[in-house]
Nucleic acid binder design. Structure first.
Lengths: 228, 228
DNA sequence: ATTCACCGTTGTGTATACAAGATATCAGAG
DNA sequence: CTCTGATATCTTGTATACACAACGGTGAAT
């Protein structure tokens, strides 16, 4: 029996399955509205329905899919407005991280933040958006951790993860890297100075802009669709 | 035209099971550190292991239990500090709700908020903490909804729910109802005036106080334990 | 007496079988 | 031709069976 899914004996298959299915959802293999047939998924991944069900329940809890009793799982059509709402909340969570980080960051964490920041700078200078994108995630993660609120870190990380596909859309917007980096600089300065209000405001704006860019993109796409 | 909640009609046992187990966790029937044996739970509730497992996975996703591969599910020892962190985040989420509500609340929602507020007043005058507690939940829910950010409503509701057991501990603290109601009054005023900064600050303080009271309670309990 | 290895037990993880609800199809009436 | 009702089929939800890893105990060797 071929095993498309490498099963490290120690981990639960449903965990890995969840990631695989999530991957297919965010990459558009299973576009919104798709009905996720359990047996079909089981066949696809070469396992039985049981771990598939468990994976689906996990994804449902994470908000990535919807399970309606007796009617199966579907990829919800997350309206653009819903995504905007999520960016709005993300902005606030990040603002909170920044506020707390400005007050609580340690010397070591300051160094780590600076390092992440410089790495982003290098990616900007090299004009490698993909690399910048990844380093950007680390940068933000550093700020989360500096808040010294592990629950907040969990929440922020989870939402960040969920918004990743929509953020990715903006990767190559003109001057995005440069602008982003400048905003980062202001954020680092504010946190380093210990100015919690400023750090909070800067981060809120930084993320809000992303939400607005997403909204712009959606509007553009809609017009494009309507026009042609 | 508005359907309050289109009855989830949850035919799935695992859903119901999840609530039952959650109940037992938050009420202390399964204290922190308890190992949740799947077969045992299945026997207890008169079902097979399958729905039990699904319920456990859900609870795990919700953060109420921990599942370690091949080692089963346990009720984590949610340190008091973790709960404090959760209150800290809750305060921020509620503050955000208040900020948005002050800007976006409709006339109808203002009426609904006032009604919930007056109901609390009645419970205060009747000196019925249990009733006040329930009405308080409705009051806060009204504010969530007035934010007009459905994702935020979901997040705030979920966290509020998760903090419920810890909030409940403070029910009969001296003068709690009166103090709480006064704070509510200030919040309602700020929202009605459309003063988003004030509403935000008031709500943040209102929730932060609860977190601090919880911390006090924990400290007291610890001293009590150490002393006698 | 202590430690390590082996083995049995226990319980999780997965597969399969069965039951019941939901959807689709088709026949018949209006 | 459309609408309604019954049946057939398909999919989910639950139960049971089986495989294998982890924990604990017993025994022997040092």
């Amino acid at each position: 029996m071929n095993s498309p899914v490498d099963t490290p004996a120690t981990t639960r298959q449903s965990e890995r399955l969840g990631e695989l299915i999530e991957e297919r959802i965010v990459t558009g293999v299973y576009p919104p509205g798709t009905r996720l047939d359990e047996q079909e998924l089981a066949d696809t991944f070469g396992v039985s329905r049981t771990p598939v069900r468990e994976a689906l329940i996990q994804l449902s809890s994470a908000g990535l899919i919807e399970i309606r009793p007796r009617r199966g799982a579907t990829v919800p059509d997350v309206g653009a407005d819903r995504v905007c709402e999520m960016f709005e909340v993300m902005a606030e969570l990040e603002a909170m991280c920044g506020r707390l980080a400005a007050r609580r960051i340690t010397a070591e964490e300051q160094v780590a933040l600076q390092e992440a920041h410089r790495a982003c700078e290098a990616a900007r200078d090299a004009n490698t958006p993909d690399v910048y994108y990844q380093l950007n995630e680390i940068f933000h993660q550093r700020i989360y951790e500096a808040s010294h609120n592990s629950f907040l870190v969990d929440q922020a990380t989870a939402l960040h993860r969920r918004l990743r596909p929509y953020r990715r859309l903006q990767l190559r917007v003109r001057n995005r890297m440069a602008t982003s980096f400048n905003e980062h600089q202001a954020i680092v300065d504010a946190i380093t100075k210990g100015d919690s209000d400023l750090a909070s405001a800067q981060l809120r704006a930084h993320v809000t802009v992303q939400g607005e860019r997403f909204a712009d993109l959606v509007a553009t796409l809609r017009d494009f669709k309507a026009g042609g």
